[in-house]
C-alpha cells in the first residue's frame, strides 16, 4: 500500500527513528553526543547530506546501472559530505573543530547508504525527499536528546549556541555533575537506557 508523503515524512520521527528503531548510525550517535550542540550540529549535517543524496539518487535511479549502484551512491554521498565539510569550515568553524573527524565519517554512516539502497533507488523524487527529511530530522532529534541528557547530567547545564541554555545547578544547587555521562562509556549506557525506554513505549 503506497504511503502518502506525510506518512513517508513522519515515519522517520518514530517508527523508523534511526538510532533507536533502526539501530543505525551508532558511531556518531555515541561519539559526538557529549553535548546537545554537537548532537544537533551532527544531526543537521547528516540531514543535509541525506536530503541531497536521496533526491539525487532518486532522480538518477533509472540511469544508474544496478551493478555499480553502490559506487555511484558513494560518489554522490561523498560529494555532499565534502560540501557540508567545506561549508561548516567556512561558516561554523568552532562546531567543525568540535565534531572533527566525525564530519567526513558521515560518508560511512549506514543510514545514508541504507536509505539510498532501501528507499531512494526504488521510489520517486518527492517521496525520497520526504523520506530523507523525515529520517534526517528524526536523527537530529535523537542525537540532540541524547546529547542533552548527557550534557545535563555530565556538566549540570545545557547550552546551545550560547542562547538557549538551562542550568541544572541553579535549580538544584547541591547537584554534582556526573562526569561519567560525558565520557565514552557513559554514551553506551545512556544510549542503552534510552533504547530500553523507547522499546518499553513501543509503537
Amino acid at each position: 500500500m503506497p504511503k502518502t508523503l506525510v506518512q513517508e515524512f513522519t515515519k522517520g520521527l518514530w517508527q523508523e527513528l534511526p538510532p533507536f528503531r533502526l539501530v543505525l548510525g551508532l558511531c556518531p550517535t555515541l561519539g559526538v553526543t557529549t553535548s546537545m550542540e554537537n548532537g544537533l550540529g551532527m544531526g543537521i549535517a547528516t540531514t543535509f547530506v541525506l536530503f541531497g543524496s536521496n533526491i539525487l539518487i532518486s532522480m538518477l535511479r533509472s540511469v544508474i546501472p544496478s551493478k555499480v549502484r553502490i559506487a555511484c551512491f558513494i560518489i554522490i554521498i561523498a560529494s555532499f559530505v565534502t560540501i557540508v565539510e567545506l561549508l561548516m569550515q567556512a561558516y561554523t568553524y568552532p562546531l567543525y573543530l568540535k565534531l572533527g573527524v566525525f564530519i567526513p565519517l558521515i560518508v560511512v554512516n549506514c543510514i545514508l547508504l541504507g536509505r539510498a539502497e532501501a528507499f531512494a533507488c526504488k521510489n520517486n523524487v518527492s517521496s525520497s525527499m520526504a523520506d530523507g527529511l523525515g529520517i534526517g530530522i528524526g536523527y537530529t532529534l535523537a542525537l540532540g536528546s541524547l546529547g542533552a541528557i548527557r550534557e545535563l547530567l555530565g556538566h549540570g547545564s545545557v547550552t546551545v549556541w550560547g542562547h538557549l541554555s538551562y542550568n541544572l545547578m541553579s535549580a538544584f544547587p547541591s547537584y554534582h555533575p556526573f562526569t561519567f555521562m560525558v565520557q565514552a562509556p557513559g554514551a553506551f549506557i545512556c544510549l542503552g537506557l534510552m533504547l530500553c525506554l523507547i522499546n518499553a513505549i513501543g509503537d
Binding site: L86, Q89, A90
Partner: peptide, 29 residues
C-alpha cells in the same frame, strides 16, 4: 559512462565549492 560522468560532475561541483569557500575558511581559521 555513468561512473565517469558522475565522478566528473562531483569533482567539478566540489572544486567550485572549494574555491567559493576558500577565503572564508582561511578567515575562520
Amino acid at each position: 559512462v555513468v561512473l565517469t560522468v558522475l565522478s566528473a560532475a562531483a569533482g567539478g561541483v566540489l572544486a567550485a565549492v572549494n574555491k567559493g569557500t576558500a577565503s572564508q575558511i582561511k578567515d575562520q581559521q
